[in-house]
Design a protein around this nucleic acid. Sequence first.
DNA 1: AATGAATGAGTTTTCATTCAT
DNA 2: TATGAATGAAAACTCATTCAT
Lengths: 201, 201, 201, 201
Amino acid sequence: MAGTEVRTAPEVAETVPQRLLAAATRLFAEHGFETTSVQQIVDAAGVTKGAMYHYFGSKDDLLHEIYARLLRVQTARMEQEAAGDSPVADRLHAVAADVVATTAANLDDTVIFFRSMHLLHPDKRAEVRAQRRRYHERVRALIEEGQAAGVFRADEPAELVVDFFFGSVHHLGTWFRRDGELTGEQIGEHFADLLLASLRP
Amino acid sequence: MAGTEVRTAPEVAETVPQRLLAAATRLFAEHGFETTSVQQIVDAAGVTKGAMYHYFGSKDDLLHEIYARLLRVQTARMEQEAAGDSPVADRLHAVAADVVATTAANLDDTVIFFRSMHLLHPDKRAEVRAQRRRYHERVRALIEEGQAAGVFRADEPAELVVDFFFGSVHHLGTWFRRDGELTGEQIGEHFADLLLASLRP
Amino acid sequence: MAGTEVRTAPEVAETVPQRLLAAATRLFAEHGFETTSVQQIVDAAGVTKGAMYHYFGSKDDLLHEIYARLLRVQTARMEQEAAGDSPVADRLHAVAADVVATTAANLDDTVIFFRSMHLLHPDKRAEVRAQRRRYHERVRALIEEGQAAGVFRADEPAELVVDFFFGSVHHLGTWFRRDGELTGEQIGEHFADLLLASLRP
Amino acid sequence: MAGTEVRTAPEVAETVPQRLLAAATRLFAEHGFETTSVQQIVDAAGVTKGAMYHYFGSKDDLLHEIYARLLRVQTARMEQEAAGDSPVADRLHAVAADVVATTAANLDDTVIFFRSMHLLHPDKRAEVRAQRRRYHERVRALIEEGQAAGVFRADEPAELVVDFFFGSVHHLGTWFRRDGELTGEQIGEHFADLLLASLRP
DNA sequence: AATGAATGAGTTTTCATTCAT
DNA sequence: TATGAATGAAAACTCATTCAT
């Protein structure tokens, strides 16, 4: 599937804030948020500190923007897949496969997400959490729809199934390699198959 | 199942290193490794910095010991469960349910584990990684055993199934609450059921 | 001889790095490198620690710069004196008298030099050593020139004579007093006389 | 000349204080006084900190004892040589050659001496200085004796000649190597020759 | 829009020394 | 005689952020 990746080649041309965001993403994923200094970010982006503070209020803002960007992309894609009028099992399969592929394609963002959420300012963190919860709820609704229709087994709480599945997805960052045996799309197929299989009545 | 928790009430009596480890675990889980100062740890443990550096070479060592402790406990329990002579499906179910319960019982350690691994000194990190890999491999062997016996479907790579399942387990830290609706044991049953269901031929 | 001193009144106006270097030189000479804290240096220079680390990478760098500065001055002067076309004995006498005077004029630097070289980072130390060796070699060449010409006795190894003489010079720091009976220039004359006398065939 | 060295093989058998002193001497010479920790010393000596503080009041005491030991040896040897009834030129030559050889034989002590004197407690430092001054004065008396007798030139202040010569000697530590071309005794001969030559009327 | 010198509060770590045993 | 756990004060260094230009 084309266009799963949020951005293209980083640190070339583009605008200053884009270069900064790209540099920050790469460095945060590689060394961690706390271990990356603002100096390192601006050096990598080829600008100075003053420039960074011109576009971003703080180092924290950079982190928040990375989160917001990822959530925007994933939410948009998911809502499109979930809203179709094919059978619910097919739609859940498509959503599941796609979130895996998108996650793999934006692995840096995901790695940062689950590693550094606790470092975000409480207000911004609450905002991000709320957005993510909406995402989860939309997927839970799909499962409940299938359970109500008798297509999925009803003896497993839908909420738990969502946590079960997204746990797997969010943990991709610890083992997925872009140069590994399977592509993100292939893993998405497998994960979606496993999910659907576990829901067979 | 009784005794899933590694230690009892923290910061009381016990030895100085134990108190330090308990305080560090709680604080790292609550505020993050980088955001917790050595001063905060020793204050919480009721000792001085000198005492800490008498027992631990560095703040990093504290982190490493938390990892080693969790891995010791989980590996020991898993190996016992996996080695039984009941049917492979039963053994996998027991292992799966138990790792979930143990993880829930030692949630702080788990949260720290996946959030802060990247901050560990490379040498120690390699050590921890190797130990964790052995753990994964043992579980994969169990799945392969079931696949060879025709009890589990063989069209899903065992390796991928392990990553799928442990992703879910390791992500417990982001949503499990001790005072939530379900206990760690109950969640363990559900997760084990889902795993086994997804492996039905 | 005028202008033997490297710098003028310390800690006034000038640039921040100059003020830092002047303060560090004085304090290192007075209390020793290890016994002088960075805080003391920046207090004496009237700046903050951050400012110091803006200009110097480390406390070590300060030490290194003191060495480099002294070597630059002495090397430049010596090469000029040695290159003249007066008789070799006259040139050696001039070089010898001058190095004594320069050393006396920059006594703090010299004291620090021989007391704290071993505390310098190995890489920087090697650099300083190499530079000093070139200095020695130039002087040895002068002696050998005189020996070849029959002006100096040839039964004493030139290398040893250099070590003999520079030992005396470098030790000025332990006994020379600016308010003593003899000026640096006067001592330089005496030392040069003694050197030349010891080389009489 | 035999017996120029103060002690024999270090760190074997001997008494605990001797082992401590030997270890401290070696470490101070190698890494510097401030850079050597008490822990390193007791480790090298194979004892514990408690033991060290049983025999020595402080780390400073160790340094002081190293100084006292060297001064005792050199003073004793020098007084013996100076007191003979051979011609004054011969006696000065013997004293000069001997102090070089002794210094070379106890190079660690000498290196420490001139590098770390300023770190000694003021009281102890004053004591050491006084003792060293007496040493210088005895040698100066020898030179004055020769000048009065017309054997040495009288146009160079005896005091300055002493500083000139001892500077060379005390700086041996920066270049003398036990495995170099010349032995300490050979260098002693050369240095004594140079000294006497420079004093020829 | 952008610079970069300067701040100041904070960090981890070291270490000589003490003292109950 | 000797141990080694524990202290407490001080050290070097870092870094997000500000601000005059």
